[in-house]
Design a protein around this nucleic acid. Structure first.
Length: 729
DNA sequence: ATCTTTCTAGTTTTT
DNA sequence: CTAGAAAGAT
């Protein structure tokens, strides 16, 4: 309901005081909240109160009676952001925030798609496949097409398909010259889409692409949504891809009330198809747009702000914002701290010691974060923190729903909810072991492919023939009966009860109980946890959708623990103290980003560094190691080029040394030099030995003759090498 | 059909 | 190094 008093506030002269949700906003923020009509681009620098503006704007639109909750579409980038926004809008404007169309692009997409599934060839209970299933499906399609996966690596083909989907391209719209895998990829894309429809499933990209298709081919449906959504809000606009842009354009075409909030300096998802041009071109795409800049930063100390600004200034192609300190300079505030260490181990020790020290001075652990470039870097810190007894949590680490036993259990539920889900069926058809092996499945696959059937249907038909051997046939027949029985049970049991029954009767739980492996009990526990998680859902489909779209891992949020996460994962968060380890060439900027994207890649890495720095309120502590072991290989990376780009007057080197001198701490810690890596024993090599060479990588010895080796290297081919240059692998 | 061994290839970020 | 696939053994 609209509060008439609040609505009256909009009438000039009648209002006694501005509504409470407007108080405390600075002039730019206020403008961003109150400019409700027409296209608006809000360029919100880090820490400038973006979330506040978004929620106030939503509240304002609702409270002023401009729209009812279900007439507002608000899309965010993460589920976390969506949840937070819903909560805050509810707190400000009271009722009905639950009726807002508020969620990620993908969750809004799936909602629309389920309502009109028939229009795109799906049934409403379609499954959303995760990355793993996508790849398996593509591998099957490629096998059917007799394509050698060695020659055309499935992950590359899948990446191409995803890239096309991100750009809103269906198979027939992909230009021939964009084809990959020697002209095979477009055809595979088409077959892959066909197979998805057959098994009544979509992948992530489809949640955007198919909605786009739905809208462009059904003018009436498009109109319906255009009229419904009177106001559209988009968060993190810099990370939208082309498909999402086209989506928004279609939906906003009618009334034009599109407000996009973003920061071009924080665009870090180009590898996922994000198109930074979307935000750079907004004024061009939406003529007459109002552009509002939020440049007053209330989060970080002036030193941190200046360091981050100085760094990002090295990027070209920015819209240009200048972050101004919104809080007074505190004479006691520290500069950005920079620390060189000997190796990764010492880095972890340094960070842990520093944290312990801060904690002694009253710093809360929940306000400390260690932000790394790549997931594997967390391990060293975990080990150290565990050893010294500092509580931590890894945010976005291995996800609960991605564990093997959970995926297996989910596969059972998926088949029950949607029998055509062939990927799920295949996963559990022989789990626990039922004697259904390759040869049997081969027969099933052949029929399924020939007739374009889901696997279950293919099995059902084969039961009437003699194409299957008697024993597997009987087993499959029993299994299908079991599935039918469970499907019936699903109608009367709660999802949690159903899951319990299925895990029991299928023998899946018993399988793990009987497993002597040390991790088996943990898996049984996880399965119990899964059942517990199911209890808060009243429909199986709702739960499965939650699993596929909401990959959150926020169970322990708020606990008094250090947060350990990737830089990507930290976007949108803030902490008192932020550690930024691993600022070395070869790690950060990540060479792969450079290889694939060149200058653009470097700029994105720099933005990532910027995001990292601007997470910090009080302290940012950067470190780099002189020596690091990566995959069994010692690297001696120079410090990251980003270090030189930080403005010197806002940075404090912990110990004064030249950037490329030996790392500090070395002279004091003579152990580091006097006991370097154990001296290489003069190893002798036999033909057939696996060896490692600093330059040529791994290889195999073919001939060994008086210290001279002929080696066939995996990558570099045949080389003659002196034996002291290689080590046993 | 399933278990065991051998080999190879891939190593970032995530809705 | 390690996961996953292929090949070989039971």
């Amino acid at each position: 309901m609209i509060d008439p008093l609040l609505a009256a506030d909009e009438e000039p002269g009648l209002s006694a005081a501005p509504p409470s949700y407007l108080s405390g906003l600075n002039p730019e923020q206020l403008l961003a909240v109150q400019t409700t009509e027409g296209p608006v681009l809000v360029l919100a620098g880090a820490g400038t109160g973006k979330t506040r503006v978004l929620t106030s704007r939503l509240a304002h639109i609702l409270a002023s009676g401009r729209a009812r909750p279900w007439q507002v579409l608000a899309v965010t980038f993460t589920n976390r952001a969506a949840g937070e926004m819903r909560e805050r809008v509810a707190a400000i404007s009271g009722a009905d925030a639950g009726k807002l169309w508020l969620g990620t692009f993908h969750s809004v997409g799936v909602r629309i798609l389920r309502a009109h599934a028939d229009k795109v060839g799906l049934r409403p209970n379609f499954t959303v496949l995760d990355a793993d299933d996508q790849l398996r499906l593509l591998k099957q399609v490629m096998a059917d097409a007799n394509l050698d996966p060695k020659r055309y690596p499935p992950p590359m083909v899948l990446a191409a398909i995803q890239g096309w989907k991100d750009r809103g391209l269906t198979p027939d719209k992909v230009p021939d010259e964009d084809d990959r895998a020697e002209g095979k990829a477009i055809g595979l894309y088409r077959l892959y889409q066909q197979r998805l429809l057959t098994v009544n499933a979509t992948d992530f990209g489809d949640l955007l692409l198919l909605v786009l298709e739905l809208f462009t081919h059904n003018a009436d449906i498009l109109t319906q949504y255009q009229e419904r959504f009177r106001y559209i809000l988009v968060d993190e606009y810099q990370d939208t891809n082309v498909a999402q842009y086209l989506w928004l354009r279609l939906l906003a075409r009618k009334n034009g009330n599109l407000c996009c909030v973003g920061d071009d300096d924080q665009s870090i998802y180009s590898w996922r198809g994000a198109e930074i041009d979307n935000i750079l071109r907004f004024e061009h795409d939406f003529p007459g747009a109002t552009v509002i800049r939020l440049e007053r930063n209330y989060r970080s100390t002036p030193h941190i702000l200046a360091a981050a600004s100085g760094l990002i200034a090295h990027n070209d192609g920015r819209l240009g914002k200048t972050l101004m300190p919104g809080r007074p300079a505190d004479p006691g505030s520290t500069k950005v701290e920079l620390r060189g260490v000997w190796n990764g181990e010492e880095e972890a020790r340094f960070v842990a010691e520093r944290i312990a020290e801060l904690e002694r001075h009253g710093q809360r652990l929940s306000e400390i974060a260690i932000l790394v470039r790549a997931g594997f870097q967390t391990r060293e810190f975990e080990e150290r923190l565990m050893r010294v007894g500092l509580a931590y949590r890894v945010v976005g680490g291995p996800r609960f729903y991605e564990r093997q036993e959970i995926r297996d259990a989910l596969a059972y539920l998926r088949v029950i909810a949607q029998s055509a889900d062939s990927l799920a069926f295949e996963r559990i058809v022989n789990l626990p072991k039922r004697g259904i092996g390759d040869s049997t499945l081969q027969v099933v696959h052949k029929l399924a492919r020939a007739q374009n059937l889901p696997l279950v249907d293919a099995v059902r038909r084969l039961l009437d023939t003699d194409d299957l051997k008697p024993r597997p046939k009987a087993t499959l027949s029993a299994l299908l009966d079991q599935f039918a029985a469970w499907a019936k049970l699903a109608e009367i049991l709660s999802p949690a009860e159903l899951a319990k029954t299925v895990l029991d009767q299928s023998g899946y739980l018993a399988m793990w109980r009987a497993d002597p492996a040390p991790d088996a009990p943990g898996r049984v526990d996880n399965l119990k946890e899964l059942v517990a998680a199911l209890e808060s859902f009243d429909s199986l489909t709702a739960f499965l959708e939650h699993v596929s779209l909401v990959m959150e891992n926020d169970a322990q949020a708020g606990a008094e623990k250090i947060s350990l996460m990737t830089l990507h994962g930290a976007k949108g968060l803030e902490f008192d103290v932020v550690f930024l380890p691993g600022w070395e060439e070869g790690l950060f900027p990540h060479p792969r980003a450079l290889d694939e994207q060149g200058m653009r890649g470097l700029e994105e890495e720099r933005r990532l560094a910027y995001v990292g720095l601007t997470r910090a309120r009080e302290r940012a502590i950067i470190s780099h190691a002189a020596e690091r072991r990566v995959y069994n290989q010692w690297m001696h990376p120079p410090p990251s080029r980003f270090l030189e780009e930080l403005p010197g007057e806002h940075v404090e080197r912990a110990q004064i040394r030249g950037l490329d001198a030996r790392p500090p701490g070395l002279a004091e810690r003579d152990t580091a030099w006097s006991a370097p890596k154990p001296a290489k024993p003069a190893a002798t090599f036999q033909p057939g030995d696996r060896v490692f060479h600093q330059k040529f990588g791994y290889g195999r010895v073919l001939i060994s003759d008086a210290g001279k080796l002929d080696i066939e290297f995996d990558k570099a081919g045949m080389k003659k090498v002196i034996d002291s240059f290689v080590a046993k692998a």
